[in-house]
C-alpha cells in the first residue's frame, strides 16, 4: 500500500472513542439494572441508575455532535446509500467475509476517500446510527422523565412498553458492538483498523 489515506478526521475519532466508552458504561450499567438482585451486587442499583442516566445524557449530546458533524462536513458523503445494485454489492461483501477472506482475496470494496465503508458496513451503520440510536435516545429520555410517557400504549403500561423497547434496542446495539469490534480485527493485521481510528490514517 503506497500512500496512506487520511480517513478519520480528529472530530470523528474523538466522537468515536468517547461514544465507545460511554456505550460500554451504558451496557454494563444497563445489564446491572436489568439483572439486579439482592444476592448479586455487581454495581449498586442506585449507582447504576445514576451512571446510566449521566452516560445516557452524554451519549445524546455526542449524538447531536455526530449529526451536526455529518451535516456540515464532507463526512456525510460516506453515509449515502446508492440503492442501485446494493443487494449485489452486499452479497459480494458477504461472500468476501465468509469465503474470500480465508483464501487471501483482496477486499471487494477497499476504503476510498468519501467511501470509507463497504456496503455491509454502510447499511449496518446507517441502521444503527439513524434508526436504532434515535429510538434509543427517545425511549431513554422517556424513562428519564417518565411523566412524558403515554400512560397506556395498546392497552399496556406506556412505561412498560418504553422500557422493553429500550432494553431490546440496547440489546441489539450491544450485539452490534460485539460484531463491530470483531470486524475491526479484519484489517491487514488485526490491529490495523484500531490504529487507523487512533491516528486517522488507513
Amino acid at each position: 500500500m503506497s500512500e496512506k489515506l487520511y480517513l478519520y478526521p480528529v472530530w470523528v475519532r474523538l466522537w468515536h472513542w468517547s461514544n465507545a466508552i460511554l456505550f460500554i458504561v451504558l451496557i454494563i450499567t444497563g445489564l446491572s439494572m436489568q439483572y439486579s438482585g439482592t444476592e448479586m451486587k455487581f454495581i449498586r442499583f442506585d449507582i447504576a441508575v445514576a451512571m446510566h442516566n449521566i452516560a445516557g445524557v452524554l451519549v445524546t449530546f455526542l449524538y447531536a455532535i455526530y449529526i451536526l458533524g455529518n451535516t456540515i462536513t464532507v463526512n456525510s458523503k460516506n453515509y449515502r446509500i446508492r440503492e442501485k445494485g446494493l443487494i449485489g454489492r452486499m452479497i459480494k461483501q458477504f461472500r468476501y467475509y465468509s469465503y474470500g477472506i480465508f483464501i487471501n482475496e483482496k477486499p471487494p470494496f477497499p476504503p476510498k476517500k468519501n467511501r470509507k465503508f463497504n456496503p455491509m458496513q454502510l447499511v449496518s451503520y446507517v441502521i444503527v446510527m439513524y434508526l436504532f440510536f434515535p429510538f434509543l435516545i427517545i425511549t431513554g429520555f422517556g424513562l428519564l422523565y417518565p411523566e412524558t410517557i403515554f400512560p397506556t400504549v395498546f392497552g399496556i403500561s406506556g412505561i412498560q412498553f418504553t422500557a422493553i423497547f429500550h432494553s431490546l434496542l440496547g440489546f441489539f446495539l450491544s450485539v452490534f458492538m460485539l460484531i463491530h469490534i470483531y470486524m475491526c480485527t479484519l484489517g491487514e493485521k488485526p490491529s490495523t483498523h484500531f490504529k487507523s481510528m487512533i491516528n486517522g490514517y488507513h
Binding site: 436489568q34 439483572y35 412505561i159
Partner: peptide, 24 residues
C-alpha cells in the same frame, strides 16, 4: 407488577432472557 407499571429488575421476561442469551 407488570399490569400497572414496569419495575426495572423485577420485570424480566423469561423468553426474552433465553432469546438474548441464544443471540449472544
Amino acid at each position: 407488577l407488570l399490569e400497572n407499571s414496569y419495575i426495572i429488575g423485577a420485570n424480566r421476561n423469561y423468553y426474552l432472557n433465553i432469546i438474548s442469551i441464544f443471540v449472544y
